[in-house]
Amino acid sequence: MTARDLIPIAVLAVLAALLPLVVTSSPVMNFLVFTLIVALGAQGWNILGGFGGQFSFGHAAFFGTGAYVTAILQMRYGVNAWAGLLLAAAAGAAVAWAIGFLSFRSGLRGSYFALVTLAFAEVFRILANATPVTGGAAGLLIKLEVHPANLQFADRAVFYWLVLAFVTGVLLLTRWIQRSRFGAQLVAVRENEDAAKALGVDSLKVKLRAIALSGAVTALSGCLYAQYFLYIDAHIAYGSWISVELLLAPIIGGVGTVFGPVVGALTLHGLGELAKQFAGRIPGIDLIVFGSVLVLAVAFARGGILGLLERLRDRGRGLVARGAKEVSHAGR
């Protein structure tokens, strides 16, 4: 990775880190923390779906696993919350690897893979709703004990910085993937699996690595969700709402790009909040906004917002170049 690869990430991280010094209102901080948690999970989705081209409709399976593992370890076994964070990520990776192994070994791709992941997430949701260890339908409460060791901070800003640190870390990870052999092979598998195999790419291994990484990152976001809101149940943790959120953000922002998931999550939730402000009495207005933005993105901005910006920039450059040529012609 070169300085040019890292500077945009550093700039974004520093600017975002300064935000709590300006914004102090707690609804806004809540909004930012939640949006960043979604962005983190979406970054996980983007590793597998964006770079690997394996569209999962069931990333709730990893989000929920992260949330439940950390909550159960902490509440039932007294495991330290920070250790729980790491264990949750490991559990997410393991679950993802297992799902990947079963589906990729049987050669599932495209919509079949999407449906299988959706089915796995639903199975987890039903199991979590029925077994005692997860608290069943009553869900799980994490005890409010404000102490840094419990990942609970007196100031919301600290949690915001924590989530931001993870998001930044995954931005760096994604950039590394983009610049590495693993990333090149992953994208090759996305573009044409047979051609990749002929060039010596072990496509099963590459896809399994991608899904494990993806599962770990998304599990982290689930874990942070549980730690911030201190309550989860089967519908929150394994519900299809989160699967949809996690794939919507990268698709809107720019699938298979480093910043796409973050841009997408901010745009979606920003617009959703605005809509709620202006038409708060209409229930579900934010969902209507999500739907409209998705339709617009699919119809007019293949490659998402970042793809659109890039095209506009190229067109702008073209205009400038043409303008310069005309000027020089006129000069003659």
Partner: peptide, 10 residues
């Protein structure tokens, strides 16, 4: 490959 298989997006 007889039918060329480029990674079209790259």
């Amino acid at each position: 490959f007889q039918i060329v298989q480029p990674f079209a997006g790259l």
